[in-house]
Design a protein around this nucleic acid. Structure first.
Length: 423
RNA sequence: GGACAGGUGGCUGAGUGGUUGAAGGCACCGGUCUCGAAAACCGGCGUACCGGUAACGGUAUCGAGAGUUCGAAUCUCUCCCUGUCCGCCA
């Protein structure tokens, strides 16, 4: 969410930000409307506060006269009139604030200057690691997964519907291995505190990290309770600190959590849906960091490096892509996608997305820190990145390490899986 | 799910519907005293928003929201949360 001050003093930067995302036409009406509402809001506040001052003074005088046993009838009548006027103005103000708040929640974050303007065709590969394997002769992961008895897509569909996966045998065990491998590495070597969080969260939490109100149709909502299944651990973990004031000495703060992730994937039906490429429920270990504005960008590099390290240990070639403004997520100010090579499908698969949100989420979730004892709190910066999402990582493992029907398990993962090959 | 009991400032803890933004205490900051410190004493000590260059003025804020009233921390209703007991349950 943007600061109301931006609306007043810097509205051109807001327009420029939307232009860089290639979405000025989409958001210009909202920005114009918000600007008008904000000036109206201030006018109404001035009016209503003036009336309230009059009401308070009047009520005080009534009290004084009653104590002095003087006549106060005409003041009581006057108070009644003022009260009616206040109610009228407040009604109008309430409407303005409700609409303004709704608009503000729906405007995406500004991207940082180093983020390329334009749509995804302006995404930039900033570095890569490993040598992508030629695809010839490498079966796609869904074939290997089925042949080795690791995946059961048909029964997943039977139990829940398409996009829900059943893992069996060593395939199931691989999920547990990845969870423990990732979390242990982050806690032991990347300075993260491990947390285990609720998988269903309140609406307020979803608004805090900016999934709502804009992306309601992508979320699974529970029928009888005002709760949503988490689309990513980012939501419960970041919201751990909602409405809190942290000490600067505690920043940067790093956490990680395993959660399942639930996504309706509305609007993406038919795209990349084979095998494990796009599913409604998947598992992921997420890293979340809270930082001061001064250190946030360094923290983003650090976080991205931690995710990269996992791919290196898994021996999976990947590239790091700086997303262009138009491809950067709603709340993000700067995002690196990590794309691992899938020889079986001949594509790069997004296995991690590492972002800094600036103070965009912190303002929504009211997450602040005190720069020094006695100083005023400021909004913290929030960051997060996958480390890593399981399904596409598994897909790449099953393809990149496939040799003559067997899948070699990378050394780093063997202790966790308890096997050095599948098949 | 049921029955009680509670939610007041950084903490603690008062608060008969009328100068209560809120006593007292603790903590914190400044000062006096002292060679220095402690103690004692004196003073200060929330946040957000609106207007103003500023000084300053105003509004809101006692879990949240609605209501009664000229006026609500105080009365009414709804909701949330916490505690205790009971029931149910992995």
């Amino acid at each position: 969410m943007h600061d109301l001050r931006t609306l007043r003093d810097n509205i051109e930067t807001l327009r420029e930000g939307m232009r860089r995302r290639g979405k000025l036409a989409q958001y210009a009406p909202a920005i114009d409307r918000a600007e008008a509402l904000e000036s109206g809001r201030r006018r109404l506040i001035a009016q209503v506060e003036e009336k309230k001052a009059a009401r308070n003074a009047n009520a005080q005088e009534v009290g004084r006269r009653k104590r002095a046993r003087e006549e106060a009838g005409e003041l009581v009548a006057r108070g009644r009139v003022i009260g009616d006027e206040i109610a009228a103005i407040e009604g109008e103000l309430g409407g303005v604030e409700a609409e303004l708040g709704e608009i503000l929640l729906g405007i995406p974050n500004l991207t940082l200057p180093e983020v390329p303007a334009g749509d995804e065709s302006h995404n930039t590969v900033v570095r890569s690691w490993g040598i992508p394997r030629a695809g010839a002769g490498v079966p796609p992961h869904w074939e290997t997964g089925a042949k080795l008895g690791l995946l059961d897509l048909e029964r997943g569909a039977k139990v829940s519907g398409s996009g829900f996966i059943v893992y069996r045998g060593m395939g199931a065990r691989l999920q547990r291995a990845l969870m423990n491998f990732f979390v242990d590495l982050h806690t032991r070597e990347h300075g993260c505190e491990e947390v285990w969080v609720p998988f269903a969260v309140s609406r307020a939490s979803m608004v805090g990290t900016s999934q709502l109100p804009k992306f309601e149709e992508d979320m699974y909502a529970l029928r009888d309770d005002p709760l949503y299944l988490v689309p990513t651990a980012e939501v419960p973990v970041t919201n751990l600190f909602r409405d809190e004031i942290l000490e600067a000495a505690d920043l940067p703060r790093a956490l990680c959590a395993y959660t399942p992730c639930f996504r309706r994937e509305a609007g993406s039906a038919g795209k990349d849906t084979r095998g494990l490429l796009r599913v409604h429920q998947f598992d992921k270990v997420e890293m979340v960091r809270l930082a001061t504005p001064e250190t946030a960008l360094d923290q983003l590099e650090l976080l991205t490096g931690h995710a990269e390290r996992l791919l290196q240990l898994l021996g999976l070639p990947y590239r790091v892509v700086l997303l262009a403004a138009g491809d950067t997520g709603f709340g993000s100010a700067k995002t690196y996608d990590l794309e691992a090579w899938s020889p079986g499908t001949g594509t790069w698969l997004e296995v991690s997305s590492c972002s800094t949100f600036g103070d965009f989420q912190a303002r929504r979730a009211n997450i602040r820190y005190r720069p020094a004892p006695g100083e005023k709190p400021r909004f913290a910066h929030t960051l997060n990145g996958s480390g890593l999402a399981f399904p596409r990582t598994v897909a790449c493992l099953l393809e990149h390490h496939w040799h003559d029907g067997r899948v070699t398990i990378p050394d780093a993962l063997r202790p966790w899986l308890g096997a050095d090959a599948l098949g």
